[in-house]
């Protein structure tokens, strides 16, 4: 890094200063100021008003639902990520690259379209709608729909961390364990998992952050029933639309807190994860 500071290739001092100042201005304007605005608005009427907004029964119900949805969606996608990592990372077979592209597909689909396809399948007029209605198991405008939408949008996070890593580490160590007599479970738990643990944790954190914060897809399938199908991001929208700006930002600080913790963990885990990749 020092080499750059001395070398002519990094341009003249004036250019360097100008670029540095411009970069800091962009960072400040686009990233720091919005972050500061969330907290400034949340505490605009003082700490008591902030606490009242956060402790409101509707906010607590939304918090509980958000945690419940994440607690179901994240383990499902972690299990999927491990299976995909094993099948697509450790083995070569025809159609593998197509499968890899399909795993990433949910990232390319608009969240609104993701929610909409669930309505098309599970909604009142959908393919499975009549059957679900007959068995009194509502999916759309109910918690199962919110879980499905969340699973859809967080689908690739763990798999896309694990597949390239498991591919890079190869399978010699696992084969050695097998030859020495270890069973599948022992091999997996004692050899494979320790090799990928930081990437697994990294992917799980990203998956959790997105599961907690998803808005568009969940918005389509939730029906916005207060206290019942409102997640935290939806509750923020409801409060904002009712012109309770301070309340909306107070609830938003909870989500912003999750985002900031995610960024810190990403920074801390990032280096270990890169070392694992070598």
């Amino acid at each position: 890094m020092d080499a750059y500071a001395l070398s002519p290739r990094s341009g003249s001092r004036a250019v360097r200063l100008l670029l540095g100042a411009a970069a800091l201005a962009v960072l400040g304007l686009f990233l720091v100021v919005p972050l500061a605005a969330v907290f400034a608005e949340a505490f605009r009427n003082g700490a008591a008003a902030y606490l009242a907004s956060v402790r409101h029964p509707d906010a607590l119900a939304a918090l509980r639902l958000t945690l419940l949805v994440a607690a179901i969606a994240v383990p499902l996608n972690v299990a999927f990520g491990l299976a995909a990592g094993w099948a697509l990372g450790k083995f070569r077979f025809p159609g593998r690259s197509v499968l890899l592209a399909l795993v990433d597909l949910p990232f390319a689909v608009s969240p609104v379209v993701a929610g909409m396809v669930l309505v098309l399948v599970f909604g009142r007029t959908g393919l499975l709608g009549p059957w679900l209605a007959a068995h009194a198991f509502p999916v759309v405008f109910a918690v199962p729909g919110i879980v499905l939408a969340t699973v859809f949008v967080t689908f690739p996070f763990v798999a896309r961390e694990l597949v390239p890593l498991m591919q890079a580490t190869g399978s010699e160590e696992e084969e050695a364990a097998r030859v020495l007599g270890a069973g599948f479970l022992t091999t997996f738990l004692r050899v494979t998992l320790p090799n990928v643990k930081w990437a697994l944790l990294y992917g799980t954190i990203l998956c959790t952050a997105r599961a907690v914060g998803e808005f568009g897809a969940v918005s389509v399938v939730s029906g916005h029933i207060r206290g019942r199908t409102n997640t935290l991001p939806l509750h923020v929208e409801v409060l904002y639309d009712e012109y309770d700006f301070q309340g909306a930002f107070a609830v938003a600080t909870l989500l912003t807190g999750v985002a900031l913790v995610t960024l810190v963990l990403q920074a801390l885990l990032g280096r270990r994860r890169r070392e694992e990749r070598r």
């Binding site: 969330v38 568009g216 991001p233 912003t256 960024l263």
Partner: peptide
């Protein structure tokens, strides 16, 4: 922008 929920 990746980590912050879009509604926020």
């Amino acid at each position: 922008p990746f980590a912050l929920p879009t509604a926020v």
